[in-house]
Structure formats: C-alpha cells, structure tokens
Design a binder for these strands. Structure first.
Lengths: 147, 147
DNA sequence: TATTGTTATACTCTATAACTATA
DNA sequence: TATAGTTATAGAGTATAACAATA
C-alpha cells in the first residue's frame, strides 16, 4: 500500500516552488473556511482595505492589493451588488468612486476574519508564535521588493 | 507626488495574505525570467519531477505536484508536443503512461533552472543564506500539513 | 494630456463529472 | 470493482488594449 512519495528534484531548493505550494495549501483551506459566505481571497482583501480606509478610491484599493484597474470593476460590482460595499462618486474628483463598507459589509468582514483566524490557527498549529512572526516578516520583505 | 500607500488593515497579521502576495510577486518575476522559453511554473514543475523520476507515471507526477489528473492531460500534451517529454505506454501497466525527458527537455530544464536561479537571487538579494533556509523550511512545513 | 473607471477579450489554473480501457 | 488516463465544461484570477468622462 505505502506509495513512495516522489522526489521533486531540482525544485526542492527553489523558494518560488515552496511559496507556490504553501500559498496553494492555504488558499484551499481558506476556501473551505469561507464556505457559505460567498467570500473569496480577493474579495476579502478588498473588504479589509476599504474597512481600513473608508472613502478610498477604487483604483487605490487595487493598487494596494496588486489588482489591475480593469479587474477591479467586476469585483467591486460584486461587492456592491451583495450590498457589502457602498460606492458613491467621489465629491472631489468626479471620475472616481469613493468606497465604504455597509453595515452588512462590516459584519461580513468580522465574520470572515473570525473564520480566517480559526483557519490560520489550524494551518499553523505546530508553529510557535515566534515562527509565525518570522515567517510573516520574511514574506513581507519579499512583497516589498516589487519595484 | 508622494502617494501615501494604503493601510491593509486586518490583512496585516494574516499569514495567508502575505503568502499570497509573496507568491504572486515571485510568479510575476518568474514569468519574466522565462520569457522566450515558453515555460510556465506548472510546466517547469513537471519537467523537474520527470527529470528526478525517469519513467514515472503521469498520475504520480500530478500527485507529487498537487495537479489533478484531468488537468495533467493537456499539460503533458503540451510538453510532448514541444518534444520536451517522451510518453510511452508503461510496459507493466498498459493503462498508464511512462514519462521521461527528451534531450531537448533536459536542455530546457537546465536552461530554465539557470534562469530561475538568477531570478531567485534577484528576488532574494537582501536575504541572508540563513534567512532563505529558514523560509524554505517553514514553507515546507506548511505544504506538509495538507492532509 | 493624464487619470479614473469601463468594456471586451484572452489565457491560465483549478475543479467536477462522466467516460474508456485496462487491471 | 478499482485505477490511469481522457473529455467536456465551468469558475476564478490575471493580463492587455481601446474607450468615455473628467481633471
């Protein structure tokens, strides 16, 4: 029965490979954790950034999260349609939209953050608090390296 | 001119968020590094696993890399069509395919690994060797957590 | 002219279900 | 009946280019 697990060869010393696999594992469990909420990783990112920056422009949210303008459109449409985000023309620049969370959006964010905390605790159950901090700090330095 | 960068709020302590962003940043630079080769992250993973396990079955490669059987089909087709992978019916199980790298496949893998090493060196230029090892080890523990 | 958001579009990755041929 | 691979299909993320309205 014991199926010998395969060698990954030249992939093993490559950080990019491990990043991809670890990120995929997290995404999969994240997806399960969100079951029933309708939320996905991108949407939750947007909710969190709008929450932290009420009145922020649509484009600025995209920039903060690495989402292209063109792709923001339908994502924001989804959130507005779900009545989680309110979108009004920005008074000081009528080209732009000013975004805020609705009450339902705030409740959704709070619920999802709860779920995510349990999901992360599950994924990281054999990591010390120190290891978790180290990991986040190292990853944050990689993100920052984007020119 | 200085555009204030936006707060990411409740995302900041979430490991999953940082994993996703760091993995995305790596994927983007990986893509540039592969320019002209026609290789992508998944395809390179397959080449590396076939290289490390000559004669391996198609399904086993998928399992090792977390790729579903159904999705392996067109990926292997691509590699066979590009004459990087040779696919023959497995002598001991005629349902299965036995995969090996062609000479062109070995050359492609070698070229891409060179490019990837430069790409990773670029992404990790301000990381010590110790930090890189730590990061890989922590990530590998997350991958292993997949049930 | 530059910027904000929009539309249209295409490619890739991933997922499920139903099928075939071998075992 | 179980497994290896296949087909068809759908959802999601991301990319580019051309456009309208506003600055």
């Amino acid at each position: 029965m014991s199926r010998k697990s395969l060698a990954i060869g030249k992939l093993s010393p490559l950080l990019g490979y491990h990043l991809r696999r670890a990120s995929g594992a997290f995404a999969l469990d994240f997806h399960e954790a969100m079951s029933g909420t309708g939320m996905r990783q991108v949407l939750l990112g947007i909710l969190a950034v709008v929450d932290a920056n009420p009145g922020v422009n649509q484009g600025a949210v995209g920039t903060a999260l690495g989402i292209k303008r063109a792709n923001m459109v339908s994502l924001i449409n989804e959130l507005v349609y779900a009545e989680l985000v309110a979108r009004v023309v920005a008074p000081e620049d009528r080209r732009a939209f000013s975004l805020t969370l609705t009450e339902a959006g705030q409740a959704m964010l709070a619920d999802c953050i709860d779920r995510i905390e349990r999901h992360e605790a599950r994924m990281l159950s054999d990591f010390t608090a120190d290891e978790q901090r180290t990991l986040i700090q190292l990853l944050a330095r990689i993100e920052a390296r984007k020119p």
